[in-house]
Amino acid sequence: MPVRRGHVAPQNTFLDTIIRKFEGQSRKFIIANARVENCAVIYCNDGFCELCGYSRAEVMQRPCTCDFLHGPRTQRRAAAQIAQALLGAEERKVEIAFYRKDGSCFLCLVDVVPVKNEDGAVIMFILNFEVVMEKDMVGSPAHDTNHRGPPTSWLAPGRAKTFRLKLPALLALTARESSVRSGGAGGAGAPGAVVVDVDLTPAAPSSESLALDEVTAMDNHVAGLGPAEERRALVGPGSPPRSAPGQLPSPRAHSLNPDASGSSCSLARTRSRESCASVRRASSADDIEAMRAGVLPPPPRHASTGAMHPLRSGLLNSTSDSDLVRYRTISKIPQITLNFVDLKGDPFLASPTSDREIIAPKIKERTHNVTEKVTQVLSLGADVLPEYKLQAPRIHRWTILHYSPFKAVWDWLILLLVIYTAVFTPYSAAFLLKETEEGPPATECGYACQPLAVVDLIVDIMFIVDILINFRTTYVNANEEVVSHPGRIAVHYFKGWFLIDMVAAIPFDLLI
């Protein structure tokens, strides 16, 4: 008679799926529990143990900040960024110097990925580790590398530091407007667009060049630039800015003055950032001319202004700041037409079709709590990747769950009947059967004279019903998954307890 339990259901295979997918890609990662103190490590794979030199037993239950890997060259700011990422709910990448158990130093890129439950609360953290440099290539500990984003994938490793954006290309926007319009339909740009040429040739750093990471940081200074100062900065030398009595002219307006920039070969870094931020506020060169004239017309309804409409929906549905990093990277690809469009465009503009998908598509409701890094690593669709929660398995109709209350009560009843059979069957065979043979035949009273025979008949009927119930009862397979398919249940029961239950259900007393 089957006594099969499996009270692990309803099970959740999400954690096993993450481990299996990460292991298949030869990654070095740990999984931490966000619900406990210090976000203790609950799993670390073999790749991480080989990377740091510690065994799994030495890593388990330690804080996922990996303070046991810190050393003299470990930056405090990087460690603080990892700790801050564990307090938030967004994906974050941090470069930090770690030390192995043998004392060797290596520069590592740590990717902190939160995993949320159905309520939107962070319950786990996945920390992925990628070695960037070994100890002989690690720089000085005073050099802070965590304020910069990861290198873009479309640049060669040897040319990542030679990417320079020439400031004269930004200063000569109005001069290039006529050349853009003359391109017409034969050019790649839309009317009114501004073409910015980027020099990728390796050259020595000069005062006129600005690194790509500095251009990325310009967006942080746009908020500090007032509207009046932006307007004066875009007017140009024809209309000098008016300053109040006793007030000095704005240095932001002076930063885009061609006369002032041409007199000296070098520009201050602050002026460069502010000038680029001011130019980015204009949607095209037409807006710059309109600002000089004193009238700013409404933005025209053409394809170039609607190019950012799908980007707005993608940004609203993005799951991490990696989408913004990807957008900034692609927006700086050289030799393309940049349409400086305000994100607050007309909502009635139709979304044009684009061959290049900048932001990841909208994630469906079932995966809105899973970050983009987890979705990318697992390579699963929205119909396959579940949320991290207890999910009731989908069972067929008329199927009994093996952990249901009805099955528990039924098993206790069958257990009592088995005990009765084990006690009274030998007793009936030894004593009652002998008395029946010696006594007179009682054929007239039937079952009324033999109450134990009636009980034995009921017990046999219950055993037959138990066999039928076992054909529709779920079970737990070797992978700790609840199986509810009727065919698989029948095959599993035939290979197991079916023969024993059938022999126990045969009414031998009635056959004798």
Rank of each mutant, 00 (worst) to 15 (best):
L380N: 04
A79T: 07
K28F: 09
I126W: 05
V115Y: 13
L127N: 01
A260I: 07
Y43S: 01
P310G: 09
S250C: 15
G381K: 05
R252Y: 04
F22C: 07
Q376K: 10
P63M: 04
L87M: 10
E58V: 04
A185V: 12
Q81R: 10
G262N: 15
L51K: 01
P251G: 11
F348Y: 11
A85W: 01
S179C: 07
F98A: 01
Q247W: 14
A188R: 10
T305V: 07
E372C: 07
L173G: 15
C108E: 01
F14T: 07
N257D: 14
E90V: 13
R159M: 14
A80W: 10
G224T: 05
T65C: 10
V132Y: 06
G189S: 05
A190P: 07
P258C: 10
A169K: 13
E37N: 11
P310L: 08
A204L: 15
R176S: 06
S255G: 07
T216G: 14
R366H: 07
P157I: 09
P299D: 05
I18G: 01
V3H: 15
A350C: 08
C44N: 01
A97C: 11
I42Y: 01
V110Q: 01
S255C: 05
H143L: 06
S266R: 07
A203S: 06
L107F: 14
A360G: 04
H221V: 10
S243N: 09
D355G: 12
K373V: 12
L267P: 07
V112K: 01
S320G: 13
T152Q: 12
S266I: 07
N369A: 13
G24R: 07
S209Q: 05
E95L: 09
V113P: 01
L127E: 01
A57P: 09
L87I: 08
A211T: 13
T305N: 05
Q75G: 12
R92A: 13
T375G: 08
D199T: 01
P300D: 14
G53V: 01
C108V: 04
F163K: 15
P334G: 08
A169C: 05
A160E: 15
I31V: 10
P361Y: 01
A9T: 08
H147C: 05
F340T: 14
R292W: 07
A34Y: 03
L248Y: 04
Q81S: 14
C105G: 08
V295L: 15
R280L: 10
V113E: 10
S26W: 06
F125E: 01
F340E: 15
C44I: 01
P334S: 09
Y99E: 01
S261H: 11
N45T: 06
P2E: 04
L338D: 14
G189A: 06
L167C: 15
R328H: 12
E90Q: 11
P297S: 07
G381W: 11
I333H: 14
C276E: 10
S351P: 08
S284R: 03
G224Y: 14
A40G: 14
A277I: 15
V41N: 01
Q81T: 13
R269D: 07
V41R: 01
Y99D: 01
R273S: 12
I19W: 01
R356V: 12
L296I: 13
A78I: 01
V8K: 10
V112H: 01
A290D: 15
C108H: 01
V180Q: 03
S320C: 13
